[in-house]
Nucleic acid binder design. Structure first.
Length: 296
DNA sequence: GGTAGACCTGGACGC
DNA sequence: GCGTCCAGGTCTACC
């Protein structure tokens, strides 16, 4: 069956898909023949679903097999809408960004939405896997997690969903380390899975909260393995754009853009975008960096 | 509150 | 093939 999901305009599926590297991370599977992707997901009740999203005028087309219950369909639609940020409103940001030459491309391509996973649990773990390592290693660790602990589609064993907290909570640190090569991150992932599985941490509630960003930041920081960089990244994913994910890359591009490649720190990166207020993270994210223009 | 050192993996490099 | 060095954020202990 095919379902049309409307998106608040302007919207570009291509811009969401390529907003960052998540599309390269299992269970995402980019469709090369057209703009879109496939995804394998496991709902909280354990049922598995494989769906595909493609472009459609005014929104996206969601293709999935027949036979899902109305409750499952509602949950799948909610998840797809969340992942693509279909209801997000960027009109205020675009009004400001249209005055800045370095953001013209972003405005023209309707950029701003950042691709999410179907649950915050998955996004927190993927973010932990991006810390203190190279991107290739992040992809590999995540692939190992999905292959070793994800549930497979009955009709296609090669397609697996991201593991549920309950599945990860059942394993032990040594097994997790050995099968996924997570290294010292393994106990962090295990602890998060056990907290969520036991019900003592309702992570998904943080996707729809009126908590001030400062308070949400504190709660994210309380998670083991989640430090300042990971928090800034997760706040962006949660639609809070008033912080900048300052990592080695951020320091490098800001240094090149405004400081003649002289060493700078977190303070300089944040100061460079202070004027953007609640949109500073997004302005940083979408900035047309000189270093990229030069092929650096 | 700030800082140093440990954590862990895999790629790059020299031999 | 082996050993060494290095990059990448966060945690813990210590001051």
């Amino acid at each position: 069956m095919n379902i049309f999901l409307p998106a608040r305009q302007p919207f570009s599926l291509s811009s969401v898909i390529h907003s960052h590297g998540w599309i390269q991370m299992a269970p995402y599977l980019e469709v090369k023949e057209q703009v879109g992707f496939a995804y394998t997901d496991q709902l909280p009740d354990g049922s598995l679903v494989a769906w595909q999203v493609s472009e459609a005028p005014g929104g996206v087309s969601l293709a999935l097999p027949d036979g899902h219950s109305p409750a499952e369909l509602a949950e799948i639609k909610r998840r797809v809408s969340w992942m693509l940020g279909l209801e997000m409103d960027f009109s205020e940001f675009y009004a400001l960004a249209s005055q800045e030459a370095k953001l013209h491309k972003a405005v023209q391509s309707a950029a701003g939405r950042i691709l999410r996973s179907s649950t915050l649990f998955e996004d927190v773990i993927k973010t932990i896997l991006t810390t203190n390592t190279l991107w290739a290693a992040t992809i590999r660790m995540n692939r190992n997690l999905v292959e070793q602990f994800g549930a497979a589609l009955p009709e296609d064993e090669s397609r697996k969903a991201f593991p549920l907290p309950s599945r990860l909570a059942q394993t032990d640190e040594a097994t997790l380390r050995e099968k996924t090569r997570l290294g010292y991150r393994a106990p962090y992932v295990l602890e998060l899975a056990r907290l969520v599985d036991s019900g003592s941490l309702d992570l998904e509630a943080w996707t729809d909260t009126t908590l001030p960003t400062v308070e949400l930041r504190k709660r994210l920081l309380s998670l083991k393995g989640v430090g300042p960089y990971a928090v800034a990244n997760l706040l962006m994913l949660l639609g809070r754009y008033d912080t900048i994910p300052v990592d080695s890359w951020a320091v490098k591009v800001v240094s090149h853009e405004w400081y003649h490649d002289q060493p700078v720190g977190k303070a300089e990166v944040e100061a460079a975008f202070e004027a953007w207020g609640e949109w500073k993270g997004l302005a940083f994210w979408l900035w047309d960096w000189a270093i990229l223009e030069e092929g650096g």
